[in-house]
C-alpha cells in the first residue's frame, strides 16, 4: 500500500530550547531513548539503535546544532529520519505532530543573507513565542553526516 503524501504534516522536535520542524514524510519512526545502546562512536553519535532491520546511529544536538557527546537527562525520545543508506536518529526532549495547514502556519524562507552552505535550515516560523527552524530530513541527515 502506498503512503499518503501530505505536505502539511510536520514533526516538531524540541531539544535544548530549539524548535525544529521536519516533514512527517521524512520521519521513519519516533522511539524512546531507553532503546538506544549508548556507545562511543567515531562519527559523533551517542549510541546506536537496532530496529526496522537496520542499525542506526543516534545523534544528540545542542541549541546551535553542534554535536553533544553526552545525552542530557531531559532527552526522552529520538526521531529516526529516513535515509537511503541507513536511518539516523536525533534525540529530543519533546516531539509532536503538527499540521501546518490546520494551524495556519506559514513559514518564511530563510533570508538570503543568513544562508550558509552546510545549513540544513530552509525556513523559519514564529511558534510559541520562539523562532522555530524548518528543514528537510535529508538536509539534516547530510548535515549530520558532514559534522
Amino acid at each position: 500500500m502506498s503512503e499518503i503524501h501530505n505536505p502539511h504534516l510536520y514533526v516538531l522536535l524540541v531539544f535544548d530550547g530549539q524548535y525544529f520542524f521536519i516533514p512527517q514524510d521524512e520521519v521513519l519512526s519516533i522511539e524512546i531513548i531507553a532503546d538506544v545502546l549508548m556507545t562511543d562512536d567515531d562519527i559523533g553519535a551517542v549510541g546506536r539503535f537496532s530496529g526496522h532491520g537496520l542499525e542506526s546511529p543516534v545523534f544528540c544536538l545542542a541549541y546551535d546544532l553542534s554535536l553533544l557527546s553526552e545525552v542530557p537527562s531531559c532527552r526522552e525520545y529520538f526521531v529516526l529520519l529516513k535515509d537511503e543508506e541507513q536511518p539516523l536518529g536525533i534525540t529530543c526532549d519533546e516531539v509532536e505532530n503538527i499540521n501546518f495547514k490546520q494551524e495556519h502556519f506559514y513559514p518564511q524562507d530563510l533570508p538570503d543573507v543568513m544562508q550558509t552552505q552546510n545549513s540544513p535550515i530552509r525556513q523559519l516560523l514564529f511558534y510559541q513565542e520562539q523562532v522555530a527552524c524548518v528543514c528537510s530530513g535529508s538536509a539534516l541527515v547530510k548535515y549530520l553526516s558532514n559534522s
Binding site: P111, V113, M114, I121, L124, F126, V131
Partner: peptide, 25 residues
C-alpha cells in the same frame, strides 16, 4: 532577538516585526 543556528556570524539573529521574521545584520 532570536538566535538561528548555522548562520553567518554577522547575521545570526532575527526579530519579529509586523508578523515578519527579519534578519538582523
Amino acid at each position: 532577538l532570536f538566535d538561528v543556528p548555522c548562520t553567518p556570524s554577522y547575521c545570526g539573529e532575527v526579530l519579529i516585526f509586523q508578523d515578519r521574521i527579519l534578519p538582523v545584520l
